[in-house]
Design a binder for these strands. Structure first.
Lengths: 330, 330
DNA sequence: GTGAAAGCGCTAACAC
DNA sequence: GTGTTAGCGCTTTCAC
């Protein structure tokens, strides 16, 4: 970590008996100095505990060694984002970059310059997201940005295919009338799921039963929605919940309505979490592999920065279905 | 956000027709320039879209405008930390500081200099935590650091008092034999809870029934522990779970053992989460108010940096008990 | 293969 | 009340 009296490049150069240019070149492996002096300088630097001053470096260079990570706070109650963050930080560390967090409480221009930005589930309506997309720094989004403007890179998962797989799975398990508790369409994810459900319903000539909820709705809203849905449509025999945490909140409502999960009502979630593995019964869910998604976003960003990836690159990140008791008709 | 061709202080000074010192002083409100020129410079800066280059600034000054936040990944599945992070970032933004994330995967000295560091639940055994505590940057920990060395500031909650309140609450609800599923003692929190439970048991002349689990244990371990506990001690009529997520994981085991929560077994958690509000029955829990804790850590750190707080300051952060159906004997 | 010097954008010390 | 100057620690010409 940091020393009490930071060791500068000049100190290293002096002790090693070379100029600071040579010291700099040796430590950065520029291929300019002889192997002998290089090793010598490196040894001296290590002995003195030298570590370069990033401020000086980024003042001189174009890059800062820092990437920004923006998450919409309204969505961040979940463990999904925590894993995502660690995926990003981990990959960034591998590229010797730090990660600073940008929130929607940040005023425009109030934060440090960054080499690039990762946007987790960018909300079309978020002004900070807007500003970031419009800025000149490379942006990678996790899921598409539904507003105007194109990020330099996009990492996405095939939510449509996975939701279809889930819906088919419900039908295979005996469901005939599948309802869908949707997230709002301000994110690409929410929009994709909603569209997929409607398309699927039409293709299978099933009347869609969809209720939409705003992000960040308290679970009482979830419960009111589901209560109303089950009342209005007693024939519903399967329910898929998009919002994180909704499926678990639904359980008491279902019970109160005199229905039994796994017997006369199947239940599934579009976001897996540890909690879902231990509800009674455990709930089938789509595993979004957030840590991998985070790493992949960072990887793409660094590829973009190094020129290994072209602007406009879109990469796909696999996700999985975790089948649990809630969708096995007893 | 950042401009394509960054506007420097010199540009502002030139356009405003003053020297760069005056421009600098005007923009930083140093009290050196006349009100008239100050307003003029500010207007020009705004018009040009000037924003100071933080690298240059931190190269010249002592400070960097960045604080570090370290979280132990092993504990970070929970929504607790996500809220904590946002509390920190929010307060930091209020002080015009950015937050960079430090993880235990970071190599020593591999990250940017920071003005201070916040350590969420520092693990005694984590080498990065060790290095940070030993470094010369001010450190604020959330909960005490149980190893050698003293951080500059500590934010803590009275977990002992709150756990006692919870235990008393269980007794008042009719419990006679309260078991405790403990977290390991590598964090202050885990240690405090464990000690409090044992003290309380002794004071009330009750035989302690304690099982300890390592942080990050999969929930199958939780379940095995509880199964064993209920088997070995059928008279247990209340269970308090320390690890985040454990209480929810316990429910199926309890049911399988033929016990009914709220009738012949009371259940409570030491960490509240949205999931606990919707289990069947909802589970009583201690609300740790993580967002407030995060903000308070940042506030203390900035007070330390500005000299408004003295080294060694310890501040207390209130927490609360959320009583739910799981601890109401039917 | 190595060194000297310029300068990134800013702030602080010292003029006037 | 304002300007001039000297660096912060590094990388990058350009010279030898």
């Amino acid at each position: 970590m940091s020393k009490d009296e930071p060791v500068t490049l000049i100190a290293v150069a002096r002790v090693a008996g070379v100029s600071k240019t040579t010291a700099s070149d040796a430590l950065r492996d520029s291929g300019r100095v002889s192997e002998r002096t290089k090793q010598h300088v490196i040894a001296v630097a290590r002995r003195l505990g030298y570590s370069p001053n990033p401020a000086a470096r980024s003042l001189r260079r174009a890059s800062t060694g820092v990437i920004g990570l923006h998450l919409p706070e309204i969505l961040t109650r979940s463990e999904y984002y925590m894993s995502f963050v660690f995926g990003v930080v981990d990959e960034a560390a591998r590229h010797n970059h730090d990660v600073t967090l940008l929130t929607s409480n940040h005023l425009p221009g109030s934060f440090h310059r960054v080499d690039g930005v990762i946007l987790g589930d960018p909300l079309e309506t978020d002004p900070v997201v807007r500003g970031l997309i419009d800025s000149s720094v490379p942006v990678v989004t996790c899921e598409r940005f539904t507003g105007e403007g194109a990020p330099a890179g996009v990492v996405l998962s095939d939510h449509a295919a996975m939701l279809e797989e889930l819906l088919d799975h419900l039908v295979a398990a005996g469901a005939r009338h599948v309802a869908f508790l949707a997230s709002s369409t301000v994110t690409d994810w929410g929009r994709t799921l909603q569209r997929t459900y409607l398309d699927w319903s039409e293709r299978h000539r099933r009347r869609p039963r969809l209720r939409e909820m705003a992000f960040g709705s308290p679970s009482t809203v979830t419960q009111d929605n589901v209560r109303a849905l089950l009342n209005a449509d007693p024939e519903v025999d399967a329910l898929v919940c998009a919002p994180d945490g909704a499926a678990a909140a639904v359980l008491p409502v279902v019970r109160a309505a005199g229905r039994t999960i796994g017997r006369d009502l199947l239940l599934a979630s579009c976001v897996d979490s540890t909690a879902l593995a231990h509800t009674d019964p455990p709930i089938t869910a789509i595993d979004l592999r957030p840590r991998d998604a985070g790493s992949e976003c960072a990887r793409l960003l660094f590829d973009l920065l190094s020129g290994e990836a072209e602007t406009g690159t879109v990469r796909t990140q696999p996700i999985g279905l975790v089948e649990r008791a809630s969708t096995r008709m007893a």
